[in-house]
Amino acid sequence: MTPLPLARAFTLIESGPVVLVTTCDGEANNVMTISWTLVVDFTPKFAITTGPWNYSYAALEKSRECVIAIPGADLIDTVVGVGTCSGADTDKFARFGLTPLRAQRVRAPLIGECLANIECRVIDIVERHNIVVLEGLAAHRNESRRETRTCHAVGDGSFIVDGERIDRRAMMQHKLPPGL
Rank of each mutant, 00 (worst) to 15 (best):
V133E: 13
G97R: 11
K175M: 15
T2P: 00
L60P: 00
I160N: 07
F10Y: 15
A94R: 10
D91L: 00
P71N: 12
A58C: 01
E119F: 01
V19P: 04
V18Q: 08
R165A: 07
L176M: 13
G163N: 05
C114M: 11
A69P: 00
G179A: 09
R64H: 13
L115M: 03
A69Y: 00
I131W: 00
D25Y: 15
L75W: 00
T11Y: 14
W36F: 05
T49F: 01
H174C: 03
F159Q: 01
I131A: 08
P5A: 15
G16D: 05
I131R: 08
V79A: 03
M172Q: 06
R145F: 07
V39T: 11
T78D: 07
A73I: 13
E135V: 05
T22L: 09
L98Y: 01
K62P: 00
G155A: 12
L137D: 08
P3D: 14
L176P: 04
I34H: 05
D41V: 01
I125C: 01
P71Y: 12
G51D: 15
E127T: 10
G87P: 01
Y55D: 12
A103M: 08
I166Y: 12
G112A: 04
A28K: 15
E164N: 04
W36Y: 09
V126C: 07
D162R: 15
A88W: 01
A108R: 08
K175T: 14
R165Y: 02
T49V: 10
Q104R: 15
Y57L: 09
A58F: 09
E65D: 13
G155L: 10
L60E: 02
D89K: 03
I13P: 05
T43E: 13
E127K: 11
T2L: 12
T148H: 06
N29R: 10
I13G: 06
D167M: 05
N130C: 10
I76K: 11
T33M: 07
I76Q: 13
T84Y: 02
A59N: 10
G155E: 09
L60Q: 07
H152N: 05
I70H: 02
R8I: 00
V126R: 13
M172L: 15
L110C: 08
G163C: 03
P100M: 08
R107K: 15
P178K: 05
H174S: 11
I125A: 03
I34G: 07
